[in-house]
């Protein structure tokens, strides 16, 4: 079962992180490396990325006059989609467990959403 773990970061968390001591920052980055390595080691890793600030987004829409793209910044939501993990695990419980190991979640800087990935199988029958 694949799950997408979406990291919804509190607005301002990145700025707060940058204000922390170098040691705390290093420990935070190290914690991510440890988590990533443990997922690779467990054979559960599919993909993980940090996303740039949403002010750098481009939104593309089809209108009557063709495609129109609009660059950010946009009106800010309370939370920022800051990154994701895509994992392949035996159960939802395991996906939730991984979610609680994400350093930002442990530090209270982000909420996390665990969403099952749909597949193209036709189910039983």
């Amino acid at each position: 079962m694949k799950y997408l773990i979406l990291i919804h970061q509190n607005r301002g968390a990145r700025e707060q992180f940058a204000a922390m001591s170098e040691e705390v920052q290093a420990a935070g980055l190290k914690a991510y490396q440890v988590l990533n390595a443990s997922l690779v080691d467990a054979g559960e890793f599919v993909a993980a990325e940090a996303l740039a600030d949403d002010s750098t987004s481009t939104v593309v829409r089809l209108t009557d006059t063709g495609f129109v793209s609009t660059d950010g910044p946009f009106a800010e939501a309370k939370e920022l989609l800051a990154g994701f993990y895509l994992v392949d695990v035996p159960s939802r419980e395991r996906a939730v467990e991984i979610a609680t190991q994400i350093p930002e979640v442990q530090g209270g800087a982000a909420g996390v959403e665990v969403r099952p990935v749909m597949d193209y199988s036709t189910g039983e029958g």
Partner: peptide
């Protein structure tokens, strides 16, 4: 077949 990276399957097997 399972749409995951080859390294993930390799690690799963070796583990």
């Amino acid at each position: 077949a399972f749409l995951v990276p080859e390294a993930t399957i390799a690690q799963r097997i070796s583990r």
